[in-house]
Design a protein around this nucleic acid. Structure first.
Lengths: 144, 144
DNA sequence: TACTATTATTTGCATTTACAAATAAATGCA
DNA sequence: TGCATTTATTTGTAAATGCAAATAATAGTA
């Protein structure tokens, strides 16, 4: 293996960690965290999701997610409801405070997108995003 | 903000998390972790580094790194030496067991690079890596 | 030289995280 | 229907994480 900064997982982690840390610092004054934002963003995309589904989309491990949701529920950001059709499952819904918080974080999220992609034109941006999706899909090759 | 999977930090985190989890599972039987590998890889690139330097290259927070290094030192993977020129600083060196572990992990790391980039040609690969470096650099715009 | 500010690392402590086991419900099938 | 298997979530528990404060040494300057 050559130099570290030509190793893809390294570059990926480094970029991700930097954005994550900065974003986290920024939303903390709002009483949020990156993880909370991830859940809210997932619910914004589609409300009433199962824990397992949320775990998949947010990349937060289920047992961690359970406790994060406990916390968010206490803060009134979300509400658990037992799935009527399948009583094993929970459907998580945003609550009013969660919607308000989402609205406050959205402009920050948009700013991060813009800053990260500063100097990228539309074609480059799309190419990068496509590559990241492809990369994610490629990992199927390992986990079966 | 549009759909989640067009949001760059999301794509970045998702890809990174997936690789990280899989890699971690794979090196665990060797008595290693992803974080341990990060330190070893950084030392392989250049031995005798300061804690702060290591923190920067590995994206591991310094206080976390201190304890990780405690652990690695106990396992005989690395050794701390006080910097002769500046007694505040520690220079971290690989130890024989660390070198051996590095050799065992290297092929795994190479495989991950290959799997992640399956189907990418040389040009696409270089473009992606360049984009990730640029993205990282772009974040200077926020943290000053 | 003494004093203040800066830099490098570690430690205190509360929170977050994740593996494994436990619980609870649905499904498949004898 | 009854029982074993699978699926969904939570809980137990130990380890990892990260902010803030503490410690230690250097550098800058009056």
């Amino acid at each position: 293996m050559g130099p570290l900064d030509s190793y893809l997982p390294y570059l990926l982690n480094r970029a991700g960690a930097r954005i994550a840390t900065a974003f986290n610092d920024e939303v903390r004054p709002l009483g949020a965290t990156l993880q909370i934002w991830r859940v809210l963003a997932a619910l914004r995309e589609q409300d009433g999701r199962r824990m397992g589904d949320l775990s998949d989309t947010t990349s937060i491990e289920v047992s961690t997610l359970t406790r994060l949701v406990d916390n968010m529920e206490q803060k009134g950001l979300v509400a658990r409801r037992r799935d009527a059709g399948d009583a094993r499952a929970i459907l998580l819904h945003v609550a009013p405070a969660g919607r308000r918080l989402t609205q406050r974080i959205l402009p920050i999220a948009e700013r991060y997108e813009a800053v990260a992609l500063a100097g990228f034109n539309a074609g480059e941006t799309e190419m990068l995003k496509a590559a990241l999706r492809r990369l994610y899909a490629n990992m199927d090759g390992l986990t079966e």
